[in-house]
Design a protein around this nucleic acid. Structure first.
Length: 224
DNA sequence: TGGTGATCATAC
DNA sequence: GTATGATCACCA
């Protein structure tokens, strides 16, 4: 088996996940001759991309699952010293136009989260990037109640957007999902729906999973 | 000090 | 601009 080839089955992927568990990021970087950054300020996606290579993800920047042949999405999850999720998890861009009649089952949130490989990574700021270790990753699909909560949040958000209320949405809304800016900066614009139903330029936004939601997933995986 | 709003790199 | 990958940084 080629080291970084595409895993053909979930079982094969789990073998790769087992292989990287416990390894330091500096060791994984060394194997593919990548320099380790001092911090992630200018390399925010570095850890995710490092693990994509090692696990054989192949979709690149296409709108496809990372492991497209087996339909699995990879999400690294930074952990505090207390082993809790340190950051929210980006899911996908919020559709602000042409989403009339879009059902939950056809949404990008549903499809992205239907099968996820969660890969915890140490992110205690006292550890240098290279010293941080990879945790024990696991494959996950939403439980019935998790799916219901996600759907309720999504439908609430999409109704507001349909009614031209996107500007009133803050990250305070949503039980497990939230909507926050997703752009190069606050000057970025995209087409949306205004209060009068006409098109209006607005800030691009993304769906994110709250850390409370991610922590529940981690707890049910490791504390049972 | 934690969460919200802002931002960074890169390919196309 | 949109897609991928996320973390930063400030303020309540």
């Amino acid at each position: 088996m080629t080291k970084f080839s595409k895993p053909k089955t979930e079982h094969e992927l789990e073998t790769r996940v087992h292989d990287v568990a416990g390894q330091k990021l500096s060791d994984l970087a060394k194997k593919i001759h990548w320099p380790v950054p001092e911090n992630l300020k200018h390399d925010k996606g570095w850890i995710g991309q490092l693990l994509e290579v090692h696990l054989g993800a192949s979709a690149g920047n296409l709108s496809e699952p990372d492991f497209q042949n087996i339909g699995v999405e990879l999400k690294t999850i930074p952990l505090t010293a207390k082993h809790q999720a340190k950051e929210t998890t980006y899911v996908c861009t919020v559709p602000l136009l042409n989403h009339i009649g879009l059902s939950w089952e056809d949404s990008c949130v549903f499809s992205k989260l239907s099968r996820v490989l969660w890969l915890p990574i140490e992110a205690n700021p006292e550890l240098s990037i290279g010293e941080r270790r990879v945790g024990r990753g696991f494959l996950w699909s939403p439980s019935e109640s998790e799916m219901e909560n996600l759907r309720n949040d999504w439908e609430e958000f999409m109704e507001l957007i349909s009614l031209g209320q996107v500007e009133t949405i803050t990250a305070h809304l949503g039980e497990c999902l939230q909507i926050r800016p997703k752009a190069a900066n606050a000057s970025a614009i995209t087409a949306g729906i205004g209060q009068n139903g006409m098109r209006k330029q607005t800030l691009p936004r993304g769906f994110y999973l709250r850390t409370s939601f991610t922590n529940q997933i981690l707890e049910s995986q490791f504390n049972s």
